[in-house]
Design a protein around this nucleic acid. Sequence first.
DNA 1: AATGAATGAGGATTCATTCAT
DNA 2: AATGAATGAATCCTCATTCAT
Lengths: 215, 215, 215, 215
Amino acid sequence: MSESSQKSRKVVVRKAPSQSRSKEKVQNILAAAKSLLASEGLEKLTTNRIAKLAGLSIGSLYQYFPNKQAIIHQLYSDWLQSVRELLREYQASDLEGETPVSIMQTMMDQIYRPHDLDPEESRYEAELNKAMHLYPELQAIDHRHARQIAGILADILRKTGVVATDDVLFQLGLYSYELYGSYEAMLQHEGTSPGLIYEWQKQGLFSIIESYTKK
Amino acid sequence: MSESSQKSRKVVVRKAPSQSRSKEKVQNILAAAKSLLASEGLEKLTTNRIAKLAGLSIGSLYQYFPNKQAIIHQLYSDWLQSVRELLREYQASDLEGETPVSIMQTMMDQIYRPHDLDPEESRYEAELNKAMHLYPELQAIDHRHARQIAGILADILRKTGVVATDDVLFQLGLYSYELYGSYEAMLQHEGTSPGLIYEWQKQGLFSIIESYTKK
Amino acid sequence: MSESSQKSRKVVVRKAPSQSRSKEKVQNILAAAKSLLASEGLEKLTTNRIAKLAGLSIGSLYQYFPNKQAIIHQLYSDWLQSVRELLREYQASDLEGETPVSIMQTMMDQIYRPHDLDPEESRYEAELNKAMHLYPELQAIDHRHARQIAGILADILRKTGVVATDDVLFQLGLYSYELYGSYEAMLQHEGTSPGLIYEWQKQGLFSIIESYTKK
Amino acid sequence: MSESSQKSRKVVVRKAPSQSRSKEKVQNILAAAKSLLASEGLEKLTTNRIAKLAGLSIGSLYQYFPNKQAIIHQLYSDWLQSVRELLREYQASDLEGETPVSIMQTMMDQIYRPHDLDPEESRYEAELNKAMHLYPELQAIDHRHARQIAGILADILRKTGVVATDDVLFQLGLYSYELYGSYEAMLQHEGTSPGLIYEWQKQGLFSIIESYTKK
DNA sequence: AATGAATGAGGATTCATTCAT
DNA sequence: AATGAATGAATCCTCATTCAT
């Protein structure tokens, strides 16, 4: 199960199977944008460069996306969706016998792992996050997604025994989700040790969660 | 994205602010940039607007700063310095009787407080952080400062009883410092409760610190 | 989504032409735009060509006008103002002994004349009119000016003995003004004889006016 | 201004609409263009939108029309033809007992009427007129048509008793025709009263015609 | 014949930076 | 030293038209 959901994390690739030519082009564009974001950063992300890297003309690019923001939004949205889907699997799964800490640990292991394996992925997500802040219009979407994720996390926490008001549960979900964002940010700094930070993040979060758990 | 046309540039102050007249102009420029950053965000931060708000000509601005990056760098550097100085005071103070947690609590209260009191300050620091990420050249400087702060924190932690290798101590300092950055980021999201987040940040960090403390 | 990016635009002059240098540049730009409009038509009127013909860079052009519309608006506004001022002189003058027809005849002779003398002027005004229709935002201004002119004409007609309700007087003023627009349009057609058309325009208008005059 | 990239082009129909299938497609295209012109204006009239609304592909559209201008030309040409045919009926009819004024009155009532009944038609013709001015190549064709119509009108006027040289008669025909164009333009302005304008147009024209009539 | 994806020149606009005065 | 007009490369985006399938 952990294997299959590992795959479902990469929604971008999952959609790739060439159902239609359109879908493939869209994927090319997204892949190009992702690649530029990871390799050169947000500053160098121009529509013309994306088109060139995707192997099509600028005009074609605009046949698939109405504007630059839409590309970034899709990238971000895809990523958020993959996280949401992963969390939903856990939410829907049999949580019998799981403690809040045990389930969070499992989920974090799965979500944080790619950063250790692939620094590109790490840079990519950090740049994506940056971009999100630069386009105010996209923040609303970000918030909506974030709230959904927070809701799922809150539900999982509640089901596994965390006792708190709905609002605190929701805040806890939001906090957990945003903690992941800060993890990404930290990895961008040189000199930080991913392993240690990961452990500390878990330890800190678990300490908080446990304080809301009935004994 | 106006920042995309940036090239490698020197980021040092062009003119040592030795004369008081000069010092004043430099301060005006920095204050204007800070104000614009806090009120309108990074996207609206143009050199022309800074000059206008600072009450001098764009030509004069370039007599005090070689380029836009240098202004942002100075702003960031000033902020880091204030943090460093604050921490150095603690470092130099009599830490007798303090536990790692007690001293961290004191320092965090002092550093985090402005965000509760002044949302402008919060926005300002978040935008500053964004800018830092957008100018790759500035990141190296950021890292140097961060390492200094981490070193101070490591020293304080060691003096107050944290037991770990030098490297782990340093990582712990770095982690503590970066946790603050993530706090700023979280506050930018709607729907988050500053009070709760602050408490959780502390609780998480203290939990980690305590695990490195001899009993 | 791309459709929605249309925004209201300011159509005022960005920089008050208070200093003579500025004034001169503004005039250069307007003259260049006018010249292009007259010689090549609206299709070839691009900001870059205006700048080049005006002898300055595209960047400079945008220091004097916030956008292309503003240039066209200024051109149109200037022309309307000259007409308004001319009419106001008549309005303020001693109309004793004048009949509606005699005063209209005098004014029309003065306003229509440039077309006979200068075909460039004729083409220019026709293109300007075309442009006005292409920019919806400018139509509101057009209407406001038109109403002012209509008001002045109505006043002149009333003072010189036309008897009608205020509304009809106003409509008559509007009609007289718009008749001039149609004169411009007709001149653009080959094979038309300006002299005849002018006489007919007058004859038609006078016939209408006289039917509202007490005998 | 998308039209600015236009170059000299043939404006004839590429394919004679001899087969009924073809004829239908051509009509679909023209109807779509007309509809877009009336509802959204010239600026929003793109070949791709026309094709979509006509229910065929952009490629097919270009099988029936060599370029965008040709479509507009056909639209304009069709409209002119309908006017021509209407006038020809009068020209061919028994004009015994008709005065120039009575016959013009009858014709104008018939031609002007649609504007009162259908504001869409009014907008359509105004946009068509605008388009005509934007494509210099089309003006020559416009003039040819206009001359034909002027010739018919001149003939009708002569037959019903207007006495003037052939040239003046022709000019009078042209003037009458163009007066209609100005009527359309006036209707686009807010605040004008169609009824009054119509009456005034007639009154003005009749006054001119009568001055060329033997008593 | 039909399709519609692909093209890319061209347009409006911005803004960091320079330099003549 | 101070000024601020001037620069122009660079960016996002449009749309008439073509052509491989």
